[in-house]
Amino acid sequence: MITLANSLTVEKVSLTYPRSQFPSVSEIAFTLAPSQILSIVGKSGSGKSSLLRAISGLERPQEGQITLGETLLSGPGKFIRPDQRKIGLVSQSGDLFPHLTIAQNVTYGLKKWRRSDKKKRCLDLLEAVGLAGLEKRYPHQLSGGEAQRVALIRALAPRPALLLMDEPFSNLDTMLREHLRRITVEVLRKEQTTVLFVTHHPDDALAVGDQVAVMHHAKIIQYASPRTIWENPASAEVAALFGSINEIQNSEGESGPPDWLRSDQITLGSESPECLANGKITAIEFLGSFQQIFVQPDDQSQEIKIKVPANRSFELGERVGVRRTP
């Protein structure tokens, strides 16, 4: 039984939890093409997980419509139960069933499949994520990374029309996260699944998604390609998500709006009136491949953080000028 990947259309969906004053999701609207991966990124509490729960059917939105391919999943007067939506979900904690083996976990969603087909699908997927041979083990016998891979293929096994991933790598350390990210994207491309990938790690969002949606206070504040989000953030909130951001008062007119610049968009040189700001170095952090220099501007505005190559040398207390990177 093959379910082809479908497009997802979300139209003005709003969700407020019972006994809650404010909406968790507010008039969200976007369209995702078949086999596309959309990364949804935002701070904790921005509404990302609530959006996933609304799309999965685990929560019922008060307003709006959700359509998967040709099927209306949720709308005025219509609501399809989560188990009937053909949507897969991978959660942060994996949620493997502790009393079932890995094989039983992976084939749990394969209802009415022939036994031989179930076995083949399970073995193929285990091999695809590098876990061949572990079918008879139990979840508690796996490491964190292994368990998360099993959770992924369990959700993919029934070939869902849409896959939802809710911060699937958050419980893992950085190196493991990067490794799993690569494996995940490989498998998703191979399966050609349409994917909604929620994370609060900006590098995961940029690396995984074909498109990125930034959520803030229950709304989407920018929806664009990863490169556009990085190079042209629509607002300070978007920019701040992807790196530390400096507010530099425009020296040409104090009444003008400040510039919002990331620490890699500015550099240090000798003092001069043409610089964005002049000041004293207050701290130097050596971070291996680069240094983080903190400068206190003369006009007593907020401290500026700049990224410079490791081979440049500075001293504490040295007077420097901040300018844009060419």
């Binding site: 139960r81 053909k86 959660s91 209802k111």
Partner: peptide
Amino acid sequence: IILGEAGRMLGHSPWKVFWTVQFPL
């Protein structure tokens, strides 16, 4: 409850999820 939701997302009805996941646990 969390595992019950995981079972629902894998296509099983609440009743089936109760018997195959929540009750054994």
